[in-house]
Design a protein around this nucleic acid. Structure first.
Lengths: 193, 193
DNA sequence: TTGATCACACTCACTAGTCGGTATACATGG
DNA sequence: CCATGTATACCGACTAGTGAGTGTGATCAA
């Protein structure tokens, strides 16, 4: 509290993050975000010109930590590329068991704002997934696998599919199944040259 | 207009379907649905006791036609199981190019209502995906593939992942990539016994 | 008479966004 | 060394409109 004071802006974004992720973007009012941040709405509108801008800030804040978490899971896992890839899914399955888990913030935002394809928040989501895919491609390329870009894309699809399905049915076993599929695909990928 | 008269209830559900799918559930008001159906709000509330009930009816209406469409795509495709499975993804890629395409209604509803896990609409979505998975499993089993249930689950995850990702980045190439992954998995599955 | 529909006013809570004003900080000029 | 200006950060109260859902009474067809 005393040492790690957050700026007002950061407190607002944190409040927005909690509420938007927990309840959904359209389900949460600007008033609710302001109240949670311990700030008046007027102050919120001093830092953000609109709710849309706040939504974008919410996703932007999640981008880096998210990527870092996946990288860590990958790095800390034992075994080869296939095992490490599968380990990412296993960690995700564990995360999905937490009651506060609500799937992937980027995917859910895209679903909620499906009628606004050019929304800044969606662009952030697109960039995030692209970064993700590129990172996987780099991992696979480093291991000398053939067609790392295609493989990375397929793994990302499995990952996002698991996110979507588990959000629907709340059964983390689907994360494991997706991880097994990724394992199979990576294992089956021929080493190049 | 004259011969194919729809019941008032059906007109309401159709209007809800168009609007909920096109704009999102929380983005569409009951008033808007009533107006689109050419009905007063009072009449809408004569047929449905709440918006939640209307949401459930919207998904229930989509369930059967959806399944039938996928079955048709599968049946009409040439080649073996793997080719037929991939064909489903290819047809989906084509569908995703239509400007009115907004992904999977069931997945998007789950994303929007992520804070209400027991919502009737979500239960309908869960049942729908389960039916889907069972149908794929039956196809794979009929072909004598080993572990058809696991394979079906992985294909469904790829399908839903493609739905989610393409809704985000609007690039149908991801559908094709998912189809290729499904093809690889099915091809690689050993015949049993 | 009964089931289905309309008209339309109404409640009450909530929504995004705004108006006008205040407290503090920090610099500049006299 | 103090007064004044200017910018930053903040707030309470407000507007104008929308949300889901209801009350009531009329109409119309089987």
């Amino acid at each position: 509290m005393t040492s790690a004071e957050l700026s007002t802006r950061d407190r607002i974004v944190n409040a927005a993050s909690d509420l938007f992720y927990g309840e959904g973007i359209r389900a949460v009012s600007v008033d609710a975000v302001a109240e949670r941040a311990g700030v008046t709405k007027r102050t919120l509108y001093y830092h953000f010109t609109s709710k849309d801008e706040l939504i974008a800030a919410y996703l932007q804040q999640r981008e880096q930590p998210n990527l870092a978490r996946f990288r860590r899971w990958y790095a800390e896992a034992e075994g080869g590329v296939a095992e490490k890839t599968r380990a990412v899914f296993r960690n995700l399955a564990r995360a999905a068991r937490r009651p506060s888990w609500r799937g992937c913030a980027f995917l859910r935002t895209a679903a909620e704002l499906a009628n606004m394809p050019g929304h800044p928040a969606i662009r952030i989501g697109v960039a995030h997934k692209k970064d993700f895919e590129n990172w996987f491609a780099a991992m696979f390329a480093a291991e000398g696998l053939e067609n790392p870009a295609q493989l990375a894309r397929q793994v990302v699809i499995l990952l996002d599919g698991a996110f979507a399905v588990v959000l629907l049915n709340r059964d983390p076993a689907y994360m494991e199944a997706a991880g097994d599929a990724a394992f199979t695909l990576v294992t089956g990928a021929p080493a190049q040259r």
